[in-house]
Design a protein around this nucleic acid. Structure first.
Lengths: 111, 111
DNA sequence: ATATACTTGTTACTTTTCGTAACCTCGTTT
DNA sequence: AAACGAGGTTACGAAAAGTAACAAGTATAT
């Protein structure tokens, strides 16, 4: 950023949320831990990108990946405390959307 | 979205914010109306994309574009009521970031 | 009248990211 | 040993973003 008064931390946070799919993945994980296949089937995201995003989120300390050696293997993704702390952000987006997004502009993703 | 319980309005709102640069443009405009050149110089965004984003935001009812026939022409962008209503979202992102983003992970954009 | 300056963009082109579908691995079941 | 199910990975074409040069409109200077 060129400007001095755009807080560097804000930038990092905003970039995290503006990376495609991250907001939706976090939204899902706020409901509780999810398996790879659950995330994949509940969002219009391909395995390739989901895998990539989950690695990035884990590296950023937002999620954890836990392997359960069941049969077949079960892998659960869940939010860390840092990740769960994003709940107010998701909530504020939803509140804004519920008030200001009108039915006509619901995008193609939903149809 | 494949899932039924991901509110369609939330999706639209999340997509708006997850589109690259939108969050930063809104952040700037929350400080007051800005000219094209002010936005361009205060964010690491090129004229091409800034122009594109401002058109999209205007079409979405988030911003307005006002021409003042000064010399040379002056064009001010500002938030509509719908746009200003995003302040709590930006605030919650900043609050999260101030608590959870540690200095080491400040990204390349800031260096 | 022509040239220059300033702001607000736009065009042409390259690089990065995304989307899709086929494929791989590992442990188990048949 | 062949097939299966979960969790990915690879390869490749399509879309979006980044970069830099240029153009339109208007006013002032020469």
């Amino acid at each position: 950023m060129k400007s001095a008064d755009l807080c560097p931390r804000f930038e990092t946070g905003m970039e995290l949320l503006s990376k495609r799919w991250n907001g939706f993945i976090i939204f899902r994980l706020l409901e509780g831990s999810q398996r790879f296949s659950e995330l994949e089937s509940s969002l219009p995201i391909s395995g390739r990108l989901l895998s990539e995003r989950l690695k990035e989120l884990e590296a950023a300390g937002i999620t954890t990946r836990t392997v359960y050696p069941d049969t077949p293997v079960r892998i659960e993704y869940e939010l860390t405390e840092k990740g769960r702390a994003l709940r107010p952000v998701i909530t504020s987006i939803r509140e804004w959307a519920e008030k200001w997004v009108n039915p006509e502009e619901l995008d193609s993703m939903n149809q």
